[in-house]
C-alpha cells in the first residue's frame, strides 16, 4: 500500500469527521449544552465552597491533635504507604520521546499519568 492511498483515506475520513462534528442534530446539541451547564455549575459550586476549607481543615486538625493526645502511646507502628510511582512507564515515556516539546511538558505528562481519573 503506498503513501498516496493512505493519505487519500486519511483526508476523506477527516473531511467526513469534520462534517459530522458540524452537523450534529438539534437534540444532541441541546443535550451537550445541558451537560455543559451542569458541569460549569458543579465546578462553580465547588469553588464557591472553598472558603470553608480553611475552617474545616482547622477543625479537622484540632480533632486529630485531641485524638492523638487521648491515645495511649503503646500503639503499633503504622507501615509507611508503599510508593506507587510507575517508574517503568515514566522511563518508557522518557526514552521513547523524540519530540523535544514533550520533554518540556514532561512534568505535566508525568502528573497526568498519576491521576486516577485521567491516568
Amino acid at each position: 500500500m503506498d503513501k498516496t492511498e493512505h493519505e487519500s483515506v486519511e483526508a476523506r475520513a477527516r473531511r467526513l469527521y469534520r462534517q459530522a462534528t458540524g452537523e450534529l442534530d438539534s437534540a444532541a446539541r441541546a443535550e451537550l449544552a445541558r451537560a455543559r451547564v451542569r458541569a460549569v455549575e458543579a465546578a462553580a459550586g465547588r469553588d464557591g465552597r472553598r472558603w470553608m476549607l480553611p475552617a474545616a481543615a482547622a477543625a479537622a486538625a484540632g480533632a486529630i491533635v485531641l485524638g492523638v493526645m487521648m491515645t495511649v502511646h503503646d500503639q503499633a507502628d503504622f507501615s509507611p504507604i508503599a510508593a506507587q510511582d510507575p517508574a517503568d512507564e515514566d522511563m518508557e515515556l522518557l526514552l521513547a520521546t523524540e519530540n523535544l516539546d514533550m520533554l518540556s511538558d514532561l512534568d505535566f505528562y508525568l502528573w497526568l499519568d498519576t491521576e486516577p481519573d485521567a491516568g
Binding site: 444532541a28 443535550e31 458541569a39 465546578a43 505535566f108 497526568l112 485521567a118
Partner: peptide, 29 residues
C-alpha cells in the same frame, strides 16, 4: 453522550483549577 457528560463533570469538578493550557489533553484523556 453519557461519556461526554461524565467527562465534562469529572473534568470540571476535579481539573478545572489546572492551568487552562493543560485542559485539552486532560479532558481528552
Amino acid at each position: 453522550m453519557d461519556i461526554v457528560q461524565d467527562t465534562m463533570l469529572r473534568f470540571s469538578t476535579r481539573y478545572a483549577r489546572r492551568p487552562p493550557g493543560e485542559w485539552r489533553p486532560i479532558f481528552f484523556r
